[in-house]
Computed example of a mutant assay.
Amino acid sequence: MALINPHINFNGNAEEAFNFYKSAFGGAFTSIVRMKDMASDEFPVEENDAEKIMYIALPIGPNTLMGNDVPTYLGQVNENENRSKISISAESKEEANKIFNILSAGGTVEFPLGDSPWGSYFGMFRDKFGIEWMIEYAA
């Protein structure tokens, strides 16, 4: 079966965000590539973009959360966009609580974690980086 691996764009704070996500999920980054590592005649990198993240990957179970910083020449990412959410299926209520509490800190809770009308343990929030998450545990 195919896997879904979300990829998130950031405005220069991808590394900070991914360290935050790692604090909730654990594990280790499988890849961190900075823009300066990709610099060439075909892909010139502005000095203020050199330390930005070109690619970062954090495995979460069988999936991988990936991201990057947007280079200056492409403009800013709309951090208030709400067309999509990252959905996490926890293995227990305890895991759901841990992930929800860590990632929602400093963000905005849109639906408090608790028993949902459809029978699962569910919560929804926008984290401090503007990324929207849904955390669910279904027994």
Rank of each mutant, 00 (worst) to 15 (best):
M1G: 14
M1Y: 00
A2Y: 00
A2H: 00
A2E: 07
I4D: 11
H7C: 13
H7M: 12
I8Q: 12
N9H: 15
F10I: 07
N11H: 10
N11R: 14
N13C: 07
E16S: 01
N19F: 02
N19V: 02
K22D: 03
S23T: 02
S23H: 02
A24Q: 04
A24K: 08
F25S: 08
G27S: 06
F29C: 01
S31N: 08
S31D: 09
I32Q: 03
I32W: 02
I32T: 08
I32G: 03
V33G: 00
V33D: 02
V33P: 04
R34E: 12
M35K: 07
K36E: 12
M38I: 12
S40W: 04
D41I: 00
D41C: 01
D41L: 03
F43E: 06
P44E: 02
P44Y: 00
V45Y: 00
V45L: 05
A50F: 06
E51S: 13
E51P: 06
K52P: 00
K52I: 03
K52G: 05
I53P: 03
I53L: 01
M54C: 10
Y55E: 05
I56L: 03
A57R: 01
A57S: 09
A57C: 04
L58I: 03
L58C: 05
I60L: 04
I60C: 05
I60W: 04
G61F: 01
L65Q: 04
M66G: 05
D69H: 06
V70R: 09
P71K: 06
P71S: 04
T72K: 12
L74Y: 08
Q76H: 03
E79T: 11
N80I: 03
E81N: 09
E81P: 02
N82E: 06
S84G: 09
K85E: 07
S87I: 08
S89L: 10
S89G: 10
A90V: 10
E94W: 05
E95Y: 00
E95H: 05
A96R: 06
A96V: 07
A96C: 06
N97W: 07
N97D: 12
N97E: 10
K98H: 13
I99Q: 07
N101S: 13
I102P: 01
L103S: 05
A105F: 08
A105T: 14
A105E: 15
A105L: 12
G106M: 09
G106P: 13
G107R: 07
V109S: 14
V109I: 15
V109G: 14
P112W: 10
L113Q: 08
L113P: 11
D115L: 15
S116Y: 10
S116R: 13
W118T: 13
S120A: 14
S120H: 11
F122P: 12
F122A: 14
G123Y: 11
G123V: 10
G123C: 09
G123H: 11
M124W: 12
F125Q: 15
K128V: 09
K128A: 12
K128N: 13
F129I: 09
F129N: 13
E132N: 15
E132F: 10
E132Y: 14
W133V: 15
W133L: 14
Y137M: 13
A139R: 15
A139G: 15
